[in-house]
Structure formats: C-alpha cells, structure tokens
Simulated assay, not measured.
Amino acid sequence: MIAGVSGSPGVDEIDAALAVHGLALRGGFNFSGEDAAPPGMLDDPARCVLLVGNAGAAHWPHFHQWRSRQRQDIENPLDTWCREVIGAVGTRFGARAVSPSDKPYLPFQQWAIRAEGLKPSPVGILMHPQYGLWHAYRGALLFDVVLELAEASAPVHLCDDCPDKPCLKACPVRAHSAAGFDYQGCLAHVRSSAGGDCMTGGCLDRNACPHGADYRYPADMQAFHMRAFART
C-alpha cells in the first residue's frame, strides 16, 4: 500500500482498481476545518482526498492500448484517458474525480506534498525517495466522508545529499536554476532545431538526476510529453 494510505475499508480495493490500469494511490489526507476543500460528490466541501498517479511507466502500455482505439486527432489524449479511468473508479467507490488540468486549478502539488511528505527538486518536480523524478499525479478522488488514513512520514529528501546538482547543469540554455524555471527559454529551445535531443529523449536536466533510474520513463513516453509541452 502506498505510504500515507492504509487502514481504511475500501482503500485497498480502490488501489487494486487503479492498478489494473497501471495507476496507484499516491497518499491522501482528511481535510481540516481550516482547509478550503473543494466540493465532493455533493455541494458540501469534501472531507478527504486521495491522490492518484503513476510511478514509472506502469500506466504507459494501458494508455497506448486505449489510444489505439481512439481517433488520432483527439486533443490531450493522456488527460482524457486519466479522466476516464479515474472517473470510473471514483464512480465505483462514491468519490468525485478531479484532474490537475481542471479549471479553476486545484492545488495538486500542495496536496501531494501534504499526502506524501515530499519536497520539490531543483527542477520543480517533487523528489520521491524511491521513484526519483519519474512519477506524476494524474488526478484525485474527493470523498464526502472521513477516511482512516495513516500519517505521511517525512522521507529523506535526496536532493539534500546531492552536492553536485547535475539537474541544474545538463540543459544547454540553463532553463532550471536557483532563480526558478525559465519557461519561455525552455520552450523556445525545444521548438528550435537545437532542441532535437530534448524533443526525442526528454528533458536533459531531468534525465541527469541519478535517482530512481529504474523508474525512468522510456524515450517514447518522454518524447510524447515533450511534444505536448512544445505545443503549449
């Protein structure tokens, strides 16, 4: 069971239902009275949130199989697939499914930090002690009831013991730095003829991180995400 989610009736079943599609529960927590919780299944604020995501590329074959049955010009196919899968699981277990791309945007990164106790890496992606940078949050399930959940422990932040920070040195245009992410500089580079390596093999800074190598996304998956980024 994913750390931070255990001991509740039905939680194991939810995780198993997601695993059929290569997804998994990625922690969760009960909202407090001080939280600005979004609505659950009803109009009242949700009482609990469970994060859903991927670790490595376990979901990738399932997405490809679904993709082969869809028209090829579908917009944002991965978001569409995630909404379909997570939405069906939510309906089955009495939860409202939400997505990181929903507007107005929900605080997914803050939820993830609270749910799994992770901290951002220098490239902005949350550093996981097992998966490194090779994971993502694809949606969340909002419940109208409080669930019995284990408290998330604070894992070792691997970036603290990484003095060389290779993730800040691989990008030819220094898109990531102590000042933050140069979105426009990165976008201009990957759209240019000089950005071919990024477009086919993924972000050079992200790939320079030594952690979680066993979960590194395959090249075609990284290229898929870079093409989507280049279209923004």
Rank of each mutant, 00 (worst) to 15 (best):
V5N: 07
G7Q: 13
P9K: 15
G10K: 07
E13R: 14
E13F: 02
A17F: 06
H21N: 06
G22F: 05
G22H: 06
L23I: 09
G28D: 09
F29Y: 09
N30E: 08
D35Q: 04
A36Q: 12
A37Y: 01
P38F: 11
P38W: 13
P39A: 14
D44S: 14
P45T: 04
P45A: 06
R47M: 08
R47F: 02
V49C: 09
L50P: 03
V52Y: 09
G53T: 03
N54W: 00
A55C: 11
A55G: 15
A57G: 06
A57E: 02
H59G: 01
H64A: 11
W66G: 08
W66R: 00
Q70R: 15
I74V: 14
I74K: 01
E75M: 14
E75G: 15
T80Q: 09
W81H: 02
W81A: 01
E84S: 12
E84R: 01
E84P: 01
V85Y: 03
G87Q: 01
A88H: 12
R96D: 05
A97S: 10
A97C: 07
S99C: 04
P100G: 03
P100I: 09
S101K: 11
S101E: 08
L106Y: 06
P107M: 12
Q110I: 09
W111V: 02
A112Y: 13
R114M: 09
G117M: 05
G117A: 04
K119Q: 13
P122D: 00
P122E: 08
P122S: 04
V123I: 10
G124H: 09
G124Y: 12
I125Y: 04
M127V: 13
H128R: 08
P129L: 02
Q130I: 12
L133G: 00
L133D: 02
A140R: 09
A140N: 11
L141D: 04
L141K: 02
L141V: 04
L142I: 08
F143S: 04
F143C: 07
D144T: 08
E148H: 12
L149T: 05
A150I: 01
S153I: 14
A154M: 15
V156D: 10
L158Q: 12
D160N: 08
D160L: 03
D160W: 03
L168G: 03
K169Y: 10
A170F: 13
A170G: 07
C171H: 07
V173D: 07
R174G: 03
H176L: 03
A179W: 08
F181Q: 04
Y183H: 02
G185S: 04
L187G: 07
L187C: 13
A188G: 03
H189K: 11
H189T: 09
R191K: 13
S192P: 07
S192T: 00
S193T: 12
A194T: 11
G195A: 04
D197Q: 13
M199K: 09
G201W: 05
C203F: 04
C203W: 00
D205E: 10
R206W: 01
N207S: 14
N207W: 05
Y215S: 02
R216E: 14
R216Q: 15
Y217F: 14
P218K: 00
M221C: 00
M221D: 02
Q222A: 11
A228L: 13
A228E: 13
F229Y: 12
R231D: 10
R231G: 03
